[in-house]
Nucleic acid binder design. Structure first.
Lengths: 164, 164
DNA sequence: TTAAAAGAGTCAAATAAGATGAATCTTTTT
DNA sequence: AAAAAGATTCATCTTATTTGACTCTTTTAA
């Protein structure tokens, strides 16, 4: 059982944006920081924009920022909307092929567990993940909140050393 | 997010066995009833035997039966032991490649949700799934509890009509 | 008004996990 | 001994996911 990297990265992008509330962040910057391809990350971001989590601006000086306050972004919402499928087993779909289906209580049990899973995530917001201290900034190589823009050239060098 | 069919079938096999406490059931019979290949199902059963959920007997007159009472088999246990991986995201493993890892609270949130998921399953036993009524027997085409052995020839005919 | 920055979209390919089944081996009972 | 039944091994097929190149569109700043 796992969630897709797609969803995983979506959550991490939101964390990155939550850590930089004072400016717009470009996809390129995030891609280099996380060391993944820009094209790949683009799809994730595009979806986050479409689903209303992120506000994207085009053109020179554009970039990304959270569309809502971090405290208003629940992890459960993100997972529900971004994860491609929450059908734990085949029979969650419309037509099951299993002979047990008509009387099966397994489906109900699994669905209950799934709801418990999502409910646990609902209790956590992006604000909880980002926190108020500067540790996240430090790890991301960002300035403390309220300082100058990011020195992109340095980030590029960091990315180069791993080569991708 | 999904659990593997492997785990799904493991649970269904246990349900089948739970519905037939009075006799040993062969893998072939279960495979035909669920319309999946014997070889495939074999691996699932072998694992259930190795993990102590099922008691398998070889030789003529052999077959499968539950190794414990249905009320003593919790769904959480089964999922924990049978599902190949419960690492929701990459960073659950030993070495994460994510820059956020040292300060990441996402991992904790996801793990909390996973524990809630498993805890919900812990509250359900195989006995809860099988129930005391005859509905499961009916769907499986089995005799009501305490009657003669299953007419295998009929089951074979049923399986043939779908061809596999 | 034009060039550059940046996001959006399309397409195809590479991976890897999972699912599948054939063939053979081993054990046990009649 | 023979048949029944589970155990093991091996190879292949399938599919979701991951990946990234290439091109298009929008928008801002000079």
């Amino acid at each position: 059982m796992n969630i897709t990297q797609h969803t995983d990265y979506a959550l991490r992008v939101l964390m990155y944006l939550g850590a930089c509330p004072e400016r717009r962040v470009t996809i390129k910057e995030v891609a280099e920081r996380f060391d993944i391809s820009r094209s790949h990350l683009m799809k994730i971001v595009t979806e986050l924009v479409a689903k209303g989590f992120v506000d994207g601006a085009r053109g020179k000086g554009g970039g990304l920022r959270l569309a809502r306050a971090p405290s208003e972004i629940g992890l459960g919402d993100v997972v529900r909307q971004v994860e491609p499928s929450l059908a734990l087993v085949e029979c969650f779909g419309t037509q099951s092929h299993c002979v047990l289906d008509p009387v099966c209580r397994l489906k109900g049990a699994l669905d209950g567990a799934l709801q418990a899973f999502l409910a646990a995530l609902d209790r956590v917001s992006l604000a909880d993940l980002v926190g108020s201290d500067a540790r996240l900034h430090a790890v991301l190589g960002l300035e403390p909140p309220g300082r100058q823009p990011l020195p992109v050239t340095i980030l590029r060098q960091v990315a180069r050393t791993k080569g991708r």
